[in-house]
């Protein structure tokens, strides 16, 4: 099990609001596929999956505010080649 955390995508970003989920618990995803949308003070953007995997649990739901480094969801990775 791997926790995906909210990354800092802008130098001054401290938090973001989850605007949408593109996957539900139990869904599989491929690297680069949109997982969820966020909105910060400056941008609204999609967050892509960092690797191939499966979504186990959504921790931050739509309209939840998450601090940078906060856990957004729990996933498992499918056979990483490296």
């Amino acid at each position: 099990m791997i926790e995906l955390k909210l990354g800092r995508i802008g130098m001054n970003m401290e938090e973001a609001t989850i605007k949408a989920w593109h996957k539900a618990a139990g869904d599989s995803f491929r690297q680069g596929e949109p997982l969820y949308d966020i909105e910060t003070e400056k941008v609204a953007t999609e967050i892509a999956a960092p690797f191939d995997g499966k979504l186990l649990e959504i921790v931050a739901n739509v309209d939840d505010s998450v601090d940078v480094g906060g856990v957004v969801c729990r996933v498992e990775s499918v056979a990483s080649p490296a």
Partner: peptide
């Protein structure tokens, strides 16, 4: 290359404190 590719992955997973 290995280090950088792994950094790309963990950055996308929100593990790194900066850009």
């Amino acid at each position: 290359r290995q280090v950088e590719e792994r950094l790309a992955t963990v950055q996308a997973a929100g593990e790194l404190p900066g850009p």
